[in-house]
Design a protein around this nucleic acid. Structure first.
Lengths: 125, 125
DNA sequence: CCTTACCTTTACGTTAACGTAAATCTGGCT
DNA sequence: AGCCAGATTTACGTTAACGTAAAGGTAAGG
């Protein structure tokens, strides 16, 4: 049988609060098992949570993260929904491309910022 | 003399609302001239605003964007502040690197999502 | 002079994404 | 049995980033 986690284990492992994890579940992004009252998380949940955090790091809203999670298992979607998925995928690809460009531009700006900073230090010493 | 813009011109050009632009000023990220009562934006403001929007697209908070803007002209900082700037620059570089990795990972996930989606469509036809 | 089209300030409202606190319930240890 | 650590639900609080609405100033056109 595969790995399972308590909420605090999962929280510690990925450095989030239990509250946040419960909140993500409330938003329909996680659906852990229950052993009595307690939540039991599988490696599938772990993956989903990682995806959420990764999304957040690049500025995705939770709603956007949820979209991605929902697309993770498209079995049980009709043709129309599947096409909708493909559209969304294409759209997201475009956004990611733009973000790449933005990051590269930011890196260039950091370069010039650093240069100016060092130049300013020359004039003080 | 160089280009200037009214608030609505600037807003239209960069596709933001005047309200947002005023808000950014309130937060100390823009400081347009005034012609009487009216705000007059220079190309410098245009650049700053572009930086803000670029930052937002990759998930920066306005406070983070402000940091970048403040570092844009380090003349008039003492040695301590300048060192602080250099630290922040290094830190941001790290974040940008991480974001790059996150984006690449997302792209891979979109790839598999698309595949599964197409596979699911095969089974429906 | 009146309207129209912008501009302004001020102030309150809204949404997302949790934080925080209180009350309760459990399993295991001593 | 009693206690503690960690789990749960419920509910209210908080912050960021604006949106929205009201009330008013101003310059150009008819």
């Amino acid at each position: 049988m595969s790995q399972t986690y308590s909420i605090s284990e999962l929280a510690k492992a990925l450095d989030v609060t239990p509250r946040a994890i419960r909140f993500y579940e409330e938003q329909g992004m996680l659906s852990p098992e229950r052993r009595g009252q307690e939540r039991v998380y599988s490696s599938r949940d772990l993956v989903a949570l990682k995806l959420i955090l990764r999304g957040k790091r690049i500025g995705f809203s939770l709603a956007e993260c949820k979209e991605l999670i929902d697309m993770y298992d498209p079995t049980g979607g009709n043709a129309k929904q599947l096409n909708r998925f493909l559209e969304k995928i294409t759209e997201r690809r475009g956004q990611l491309e733009q973000q790449m460009l933005d990051i590269q531009q930011m890196q260039l700006e950091l370069d010039t910022a650093e240069e100016r900073c060092r130049a300013a230090m020359e004039r003080i010493p």
